[in-house]
Amino acid sequence: MTPVRVVLPATLRSLAGISGEAVIDVDVDGDGEVTTAAVLDALDRCYPVLRWTLREQQSGSRRPFIRFFACQEDLSLELLDAPLPAAVAAGREPLVVIGAIAGG
């Protein structure tokens, strides 16, 4: 486990009672890396009310209007099992979850 910083949209922070960044303990995989899926699993564990708010219920894939940013990069189209940047795994940078601008 390693502590990872996560910035959530205001709606989800309010729902989960989080002020500011969430810092959660995330599983590290066999290669010593942290994946987006592992962060989302840890969020579900720490904040059960967030379950299925970022991933689709049946497929487990990213919900269409959810984006993942880190280290000034858009990681949204990466596989959820792909490793996050080392700076996120080391807790130097947060994983930023964005609700896409939509709706006019």
């Binding site: 709606t11 299925w52 970022l54 689709e56 919900r63 896409a100 709706g103």
Partner: peptide, 8 residues
């Protein structure tokens, strides 16, 4: 529910 975050 919300289009972004699904069902509660």
């Amino acid at each position: 529910s919300r289009g972004w975050f699904g069902q509660l």
